[in-house]
Structures are given as structure tokens and as C-alpha cells.
């Protein structure tokens, strides 16, 4: 039975389209005066955050609350985890509390996968290490679809720290499922080892790819995960892989700029580009709530989940 959303690869094309279509209908809720649906009344969603996050946690919390679910927030700081409790014991505690859904963010890749074997509720991966962040990919696809229409055959370029990015991997998998052409651009040192097995193209030259792209998604350089020198200086990185005004001017008229946030202005993206009307950065945040509502509804709303992977 499908119960969890751990990887963007869990989603078939039909699953992904069902989530995006559902999100499209739910998007109207945010413009109403009563932003609430009774659908998940009496269900409990636990936000289990072992890593710092503001927008993702708030986004999941808002999504669950708009569907009338009870939300329990758990962050590792100030919890029994800091006293040495293991993930499994934390999971069993949640199980005893009767969580219907667990949203987990963890620094270790694969933690949600392990958690899914211990709890009866649906597990939603909200980012695990450098592995995946499927709901980010869904909200990105939703944002692209709203701006550009059908994604079939669209050229999407993802630029930056692919090595440490869970957003890049989830996006490549989901966008491939949806029929888009994805190109990853980064310095050779910032590609993971098996990137040639991913369903996408890779390039080291941003200027060659830029004029053909319908979407340019910039990734943050995750300095906190870097334990070695991956490029000589920030300035050199910015000059070769940053989206400045000159590069922005060489993009197609209809092309959009995305960034999953948090962004470092002046590093991977110039402030003028981030604030341009063709940038979807603020939209992505609003779309995040809508898309996560769709995921929670489809996983928890019925007798059994309508989407997601087996476990």
C-alpha cells in the first residue's frame, strides 16, 4: 500500500499530476476570508525537525492547520534527543501518541526511510541530508506550471551546489517524470559522484545553457556542509556561476528565475534579479503551503493514501 512520500521517485506521472491538480484547486483557499477546510479534523500531524528550518516547518504547519489537522511541533533542540535519545525511540514515542502523519527533516540521508519502517502513519520527507526534498520539487513544479503551462519538453536549468543539494536531486527526478529536460550546471567539484546516472544532462558552462532555458533555478552554496575547498573563492564562483544582471539579460523573454531559499544575495544571485517580476521566489513560498496541503490531503484524507511509495 502506498503510504509515504520519501522520494520524488516514489511518484508516478499520474501521482505527480494528481498532486499538482489538487494543489491548483486548493490554491483558491488562500484568497478566501476563511482559509480552512475540515478535511483532516481529528488527525494528528507531527513535525519532526532535527535540522534547522524556518520556511519548510512553517509551511507544513500552515498546510496541516488549513486542513484542520492537529499539529505537534517537535524540534531536536530542547527535546530528549539532546539527552541522547535515538531516532527509533523518538519514533516509538510518536507511535504511542497516535500520529497519523509524520513530517521529518533530518541531517542524515535515509532517516525518513528508516522512520517509515517504525511507524504506522504516513511519513513525509521534508529534507534528509543531501538526499531528497520531494515537497520542494513539487512546489517548484507547481510554480513552473502556473507560470509556463505544461512542463513536457520544457528546458530547466539548475545551477549551483548540486553536491550538497537535496532540492536538485528531487527536482531532477520529478521533472524527468513530468517530461521536462533538465540540465544541471556546476563546477566539476560540486557534482556528486554518480550524477551521470541521473536522468538529466550536466554542464560546466552556464553561459552556454542560459539562452536555451525556460527556467533557471539557482541553488545556494551550502557552506555549512562544506568541509573542503570546492572552489577557489566566493568571488570566482559568483563570477562563473552567479546569475547577475548581464546573464539575466541573455535569458529568453518568457524564462523565469527560481530559488528554493534561503538565498545569498550577491553570491549565487544578484539582488536585482531576485527582485525582478520574472523571479518566482516569493511565489514559491506561497505555493509551498498549497502543495503541501495537497500532499497531506492525498496521503491522510482518505481511507488509504492516494499517492506515494510503498514501504
Amino acid at each position: 500500500m502506498k503510504r509515504h512520500l520519501i522520494s520524488a521517485a516514489d511518484l508516478t506521472r499520474d501521482d505527480a499530476l494528481l498532486i499538482l491538480d489538487t494543489a491548483e484547486e486548493l490554491a483558491q483557499i488562500s484568497s478566501r476570508s476563511i482559509k480552512k477546510l475540515p478535511t483532516l479534523r481529528g488527525r494528528t500531524v507531527v513535525n519532526l525537525f532535527f535540522e534547522d528550518s524556518t520556511r519548510t516547518r512553517i509551511s507544513f504547519e500552515a498546510a496541516a492547520k488549513r486542513l484542520s489537522a492537529d499539529v505537534i511541533n517537535f524540534s531536536a533542540k530542547g527535546s530528549s534527543v539532546s539527552k541522547g535519545e535515538s531516532l527509533k525511540d523518538t519514533a516509538l514515542t510518536l507511535e504511542a501518541m497516535g500520529a497519523d502523519g509524520v513530517v521529518i527533516r533530518h541531517g542524515a540521508s535515509g532517516a525518513p526511510h528508516r522512520l517509515a519502517t517504525w511507524v504506522h502513519g504516513s511519513v513525509v520527507n521534508a529534507g534528509d541530508g543531501t538526499h531528497e526534498h520531494p515537497t520542494q520539487a513539487l512546489l517548484d513544479a507547481f510554480t513552473m506550471r502556473r507560470r509556463l503551462g505544461d512542463l513536457e519538453g520544457r528546458k530547466i536549468t539548475i545551477v549551483g551546489d548540486v553536491l550538497h543539494s537535496r532540492v536538485a536531486r528531487s527536482n531532477v527526478l520529478l521533472l524527468h517524470t513530468l517530461g521536462a529536460d533538465v540540465t544541471l550546471v556546476a563546477p566539476p567539484t560540486l557534482f556528486p559522484i554518480a550524477v551521470d546516472t541521473w536522468p538529466c544532462q550536466i554542464s560546466y558552462d552556464l553561459d552556454a545553457v542560459l539562452p536555451k532555458s525556460d527556467v533557471v533555478m539557482m541553488l545556494r552554496v551550502q557552506a555549512e556542509r562544506m568541509n573542503a575547498a570546492y572552489f577557489p573563492t566566493a568571488r570566482e564562483y559568483s563570477r562563473r556561476y552567479g546569475l547577475d544582471l548581464a546573464r539575466f539579460g541573455r535569458m529568453q523573454e518568457h524564462a523565469i528565475v527560481m530559488h528554493p531559499g534561503p538565498m545569498v544575495r550577491g553570491m549565487e544571485i544578484a539582488a536585482e534579479v531576485a527582485d525582478s517580476p520574472r523571479s518566482t521566489i516569493v511565489e514559491q513560498v506561497a505555493n509551498g503551503v498549497t502543495t503541501r496541503m495537497a500532499v497531506l490531503y492525498l496521503l491522510l484524507g482518505g481511507s488509504e493514501p492516494a499517492i506515494g511509495g510503498d514501504q
Binding site: D21, P38, P305
Partner: peptide
């Protein structure tokens, strides 16, 4: 759909437009 009392008796279904 989101207000139905039989939602939990079947898998979640696609939404129509309001």
C-alpha cells in the same frame, strides 16, 4: 469533496473546481 462525511471510507479523490 473536502466536506464529505464519507471521505475516510475511500482513498482520497481528486478535487473539482469551486
Amino acid at each position: 469533496t473536502m466536506y464529505r462525511d464519507d471521505l475516510r471510507m475511500k482513498p482520497a479523490r481528486a478535487l473539482g473546481r469551486t
